[in-house]
Design a protein around this nucleic acid. Sequence first.
DNA 1: CAGTATCCGTCTTGATACTG
DNA 2: CAGTATCAAGACGGATACTG
Lengths: 124, 124
Amino acid sequence: MDTDDELRIDAPHRELLDQILDKWSLSVLNELCERPCRFNELRRAIPQVTQKSLTATLRRLERNGVVERKVASTRPVAVVYRITPLGKTLRHPVDVLLAWASQNMPAIERAREDFDEREEEAHL
Amino acid sequence: MDTDDELRIDAPHRELLDQILDKWSLSVLNELCERPCRFNELRRAIPQVTQKSLTATLRRLERNGVVERKVASTRPVAVVYRITPLGKTLRHPVDVLLAWASQNMPAIERAREDFDEREEEAHL
DNA sequence: CAGTATCCGTCTTGATACTG
DNA sequence: CAGTATCAAGACGGATACTG
């Protein structure tokens, strides 16, 4: 029985979402949606990320075609990252998700408190 | 300058998305959107998940208020998991995301191949 | 049935140092 | 400036065994 409407999760979907919705990707995408950035600009914009993780994130996003990396052969080299057309199409789904998160954050925090309280009671 | 429209990612948002979009959550949500399930029903429905991970996923979802856990004190105990009203509202954003993934999967796979090819060339 | 407990290997992360 | 390389620490996932 697979008369299910949409919510089908298979391996490729999962992998894709893992690569694009990971810890730093959304922040990077956010920055690059506003303007193209240099590597160190991004670091300053997202101070918590280490250069290692930022490099990894950018590579992943580049590989998946949502970010473009351009090297100018000046001295010293200048590297510019910018969002691709494909990357821009990501903005809508992500916004929908973030809108959901914002709207329901209060309800979720209440749920968490309730849960944690019940937990405590149970462990007396 | 923070005249940015929406894509703001702060720690609470990130944490929330991590909890709800993690490896098994979407599959579980998928099942529970169709019908309430027993623990072992879920295991059969998602054969790749171990009971440890399934337990952890269900606890997390329960804590965030998207899944409800009900224990019937029969012998042996019967535990039923069902989606909450809050959980149902998650379906739309997730569907939007999955629709994006389905639509753009071909483009993404092309991007990956191109990237990997360029990588190889570079390493000759 | 619906878990918990434990061990163990992997995968990720961060810190630090170095390079063209 | 924009990375790469390396190593250690910790989180995570899977396999197995056990319990009310």
